[in-house]
Simulated scan of single mutants.
Amino acid sequence: MRLRIDADLRYAMSEPVDVLLMIEAAELPDQTPIDDRLAIDGIGPLRAIAGEDGVGRRRWMRADGDFHAHYQAVVEVDRRPVTIDELPITPRRELPPEVIPYLWPSRYCEADRFEAFVAREFPGDNHGRKILAMARWIREHLDYRPGSTDVRTTAVDVFVSRQGVCRDFAHLLASLARAAGVPARLASAYAWRLDPPDFHAVVEIWLAGDWYLVDPTELAPLDGLVRIAIGRDATDIAFMTIFGAAELIEQTIRVERIDGD
């Protein structure tokens, strides 16, 4: 599948601020940026650094006044559907060192607070079916409601309020998986057929020696996702972190398939 991505961000900075931007498609085994261009106005010098675990690319900059970032890309996605039902959960003692941090609680994913709930609600079964059951529970018990949460909302908050947006659904699934001893990390992505178009948050689960995508919202097909960043939670995958005051003027995201339907 070949996808064309167009992201346009406009902000007004009331004072000079440091900005960490991460909106470029990552190069990964199942997705290849063929042509991508990032143009930014209203900034000082750029400095590129690698994203978490070397996935994707962040850019440091100094911004003041009107800020405009425009990203365009064509990305080849070669991701075949995988059924994770029968994939085994790796015992904790056999996990490779690089995935162990994704077992731990984090700022937005208080996994330790869900251990009793997970043991009671999802007992037994050491296969991917357990993760799919968690995702199904989230869809059945949470309302997808834009504007119902904010940057302070954690997985526990969402569990109590039973409402949220994609990042909240992802935080809760990652928390439940970690509570069951399964490494889980968040991924930010561009998503084909997401309505309304926006940055999307999904989860990657470690099963049988590899990471597998799971979208607890089921709002977009997995084979139409283009990952930008991965991390422990929304702190690590934010498309834009502004260290100071800023006003959002306009933001548009477009993802279209250009090799047929």
Score class of each variant (00 low, 15 high):
A119G: 13
P81N: 05
A119C: 09
E110L: 15
E86Q: 07
A119D: 14
W60G: 00
N126Y: 10
N126L: 10
P81I: 10
R107W: 15
V55L: 05
N126S: 09
L46T: 07
H68R: 10
R92N: 07
P97A: 11
G65Y: 13
R120G: 11
D53C: 04
R92Y: 14
D150N: 12
W60K: 05
I138W: 06
A135L: 12
E121M: 12
E140H: 15
V75L: 01
F114I: 10
R129T: 15
V156S: 08
S148R: 04
R152F: 11
A155E: 08
V151H: 09
R113P: 06
E52I: 01
A135V: 10
T83H: 08
A50L: 05
Y71G: 00
G65N: 04
W104C: 14
E140D: 09
R57S: 01
S106Y: 03
V99I: 10
C109P: 03
W104Y: 15
F122P: 09
V156L: 12
H141I: 13
T149S: 15
V77A: 00
I84S: 03
R92H: 15
V77T: 01
I131T: 10
H127K: 08
L87T: 06
G54Q: 04
E98G: 05
A73N: 01
D157Q: 00
D64R: 11
E76F: 05
